[in-house]
Design a protein around this nucleic acid. Sequence first.
DNA 1: CGGTATCCAAAATGATACTG
DNA 2: CAGTATCATTTTGGATACCG
Lengths: 123, 123
Amino acid sequence: MADDDFTMQDEMRRAFSMLSGKWKLEIMWLLNQRVHRFGELRKVIPGITQHMLTAQLRELEADGLISRTVYAEVPPRVEYEMTAKARGLGPTMEALTAWWLEYGKTVPQKAITRGRKKQRLEK
Amino acid sequence: MADDDFTMQDEMRRAFSMLSGKWKLEIMWLLNQRVHRFGELRKVIPGITQHMLTAQLRELEADGLISRTVYAEVPPRVEYEMTAKARGLGPTMEALTAWWLEYGKTVPQKAITRGRKKQRLEK
DNA sequence: CGGTATCCAAAATGATACTG
DNA sequence: CAGTATCATTTTGGATACCG
């Protein structure tokens, strides 16, 4: 009966939690395309602070979604990459992208500034 | 060249923002399965407060992802449903579900309590 | 370069009480 | 039943300083 639905949602909760950080979808979307260095992520995610980027990356790493590789060079280089587990998210990211490209544009612009100021137009 | 990537990510940002609330993925996943009443959502999303549920629903509505229908009955009944626009998210939700069912179980349990206490096991 | 640490401000979320 | 109002707590942002 609806019992299956309940169990399913219950299992999904961990997945929701792992992707619910404020910048995690964007980070995972970027890493799904290719490996990124720390500085690269900072550059391509306007508005994120070093502090938050570090925190979100640490959480994703703790959840086993990304791996962190430090290269012993000067200056140091650190690369973030999807783990094998997270690479299974590819179809999800691609479906999300396809959805937005098809239905997203049908909406007025609003304000996308994810910085804290005017996160959302008048409530 | 990489210009396309930049533009793409730039457009995707609105989509990320619309789905980045703490409970939005779970709400959309549930609504993707069927229409839900306010009280139903409360019941099937353990830990969410009335306040937060209301807030998240209002934001999703403002973003055109869900519709709110009030039935003039006593006691009042309010149903939330995906809009045509959001129904395009179906494949995304299904890909996410398929991913988790295949790769998710490979992980230790940790703590899923999404309440604010012990959101995450030792950091 | 890729962080960590600190301090403060603002925003998001939670808890509880109350209401049409 | 489906909220709103109020207040408390947590999370996130901003800025700056410091380090291997």
